[in-house]
Simulated assay, not measured.
Amino acid sequence: MGKKIVRLVTLVLSMFVLATSGNVVMAQQYPIKPIKLIVPFPPAGATDVMGRAIAQKLSEGLGQTVLVENQPGAGSTIGTDLVAKATPDGYTLLLASGSLAIAVNLYSKLGFDMMKSFAPVSLVGHVPHMLVVHPSVPANSVKELIALAKAKPGQLTAASQGNGTPSHLELELFMTAAGINMLHVPYKGSNNVMPDLLAGNVSVFFDSVPSSMPLVRNGKLKALGVVGDKRLPTSPNIPTLAEAGLPGFDAKNRFALLAPAGTPKEIVQLLNTQMAKVVAAPDLVARLGSQGAILEASTPEQLAAMMKTDVAKWARVVKDANVRAN
């Protein structure tokens, strides 16, 4: 009996060594074929634009083609689920946005766990949002808007891209932090919000900087504050919401590169090293910066901590505001 146990232990250890050495060899050879980058949103949106720019730079750095594949739907959870269930070999990656940390708090039946189903690779950066209002709104600062909302509770109309979207959750976070109540008007995407906002049919909107800034510059909208901890380099005259009267207010729409859980650490580290180079590339910084994106890398550990923080923050907002997915 003792010899059988010894042989069994030896066999198990041998299999472990073979599996481990196989992972090492795979990591050393990586990448030997094209890599698929899943963008869980339709083409032409902010996530898609960033994904294609990053894919091009990663292709150059890795010496292998990185192909973008759009898999939209259900608040980004369809494409995310595909990556969670993909073979953890580094050939299927996910460009996640801030919508994911919101979605995991909205959808009760998901086939993945945001904190357990993925290997964080690197932060990519974020696209700041800002609080804009129609010019007819008699408020030229965040403090004045809060005062106006308190004087007219439930009368100011505030648009969003739809229930459970980042613009909706930012609005809920803003109302909670400011102690005010505005009438939420959900739309289906920014393109549907803009005609009504420009016509003055709705008054308030949290929108991405690339979308609203041209309208702010030509006087069709007023920008009261930037969502984030820093002012925009291109518009330093616009204060952050924290500076404008809501200390600590931050709701970054982060973009991050994730791999399936179980991806060899050597591959994760190689991708992390490449991403640090990608987000520092001057031409990419200028190109995406002109569209409002702020690029920034991180270690996998730093990204994991950010993901945990974001999930917890949006969980509170979703619960307190009783938000439901469309």
Rank of each mutant, 00 (worst) to 15 (best):
Q269S: 15
F249W: 11
V209S: 09
S212L: 10
A242Y: 08
P247T: 06
F205N: 00
S203K: 11
V216I: 15
V226G: 07
M213H: 04
E243P: 10
A251F: 06
F249N: 07
N218D: 14
D250H: 12
G248L: 10
L258Y: 11
A259H: 13
L258K: 07
S208A: 14
P236R: 14
K230T: 06
V227W: 00
N218Q: 09
P236T: 15
V216L: 09
D207W: 12
L271C: 13
I267S: 11
F249K: 06
N218I: 01
F249Q: 03
G262E: 11
L270G: 14
G248A: 12
P260H: 09
S203T: 01
P260C: 12
N237Q: 15
P210K: 03
V202S: 14
K222V: 03
S203D: 14
R217S: 10
L241Q: 01
L271W: 09
S203W: 06
N218T: 04
L232G: 02
P233H: 04
S208D: 08
E243Q: 13
L270R: 15
L241M: 15
E266R: 15
L246S: 08
D250Y: 08
K252S: 15
S203F: 00
L271T: 07
L224D: 00
S208L: 11
A251Y: 01
N253G: 14
K220Y: 10
V209Y: 15
F255N: 13
V202Y: 15
V202K: 13
L257M: 14
E243N: 04
P264A: 04
P210W: 04
G248R: 12
D229Y: 05
N237W: 10
L270E: 14
S235H: 15
I238K: 06
V204T: 08
N272S: 13
R254P: 01
L246M: 09
P239F: 03
D207F: 05
S235C: 07
F249T: 05
A261C: 09
T234R: 09
T263C: 12
P233Y: 02
G219M: 05
V216P: 06
M213T: 02
P260N: 08
P260W: 05
F255I: 00
N218F: 04
L221W: 01
E243F: 03
L257I: 10
A244K: 02
R231K: 12
G228A: 03
I267N: 07
N218S: 04
A223P: 08
V226I: 14
N253I: 09
I267H: 08
P210R: 01
V204R: 04
A259V: 10
P214M: 05
G262T: 08
N237F: 02
S235N: 14
A244G: 09
R217C: 00
G262L: 10
F249H: 13
K252F: 05
F206C: 07
A223E: 04
K222W: 01
L271E: 13
N272T: 15
R231Y: 00
R254S: 14
V204K: 10
G245I: 10
I267Y: 08
L241K: 07
V216F: 12
F255T: 03
D207L: 13
V268K: 05
G225S: 02
P239Y: 02
G219T: 00
P260K: 09
V204E: 13
P233R: 07
T263V: 10
V226K: 01
V226A: 01
G219D: 05
R231N: 02
M213G: 00
P236V: 11
T263Y: 12
F249V: 12
N218W: 02
E243I: 02
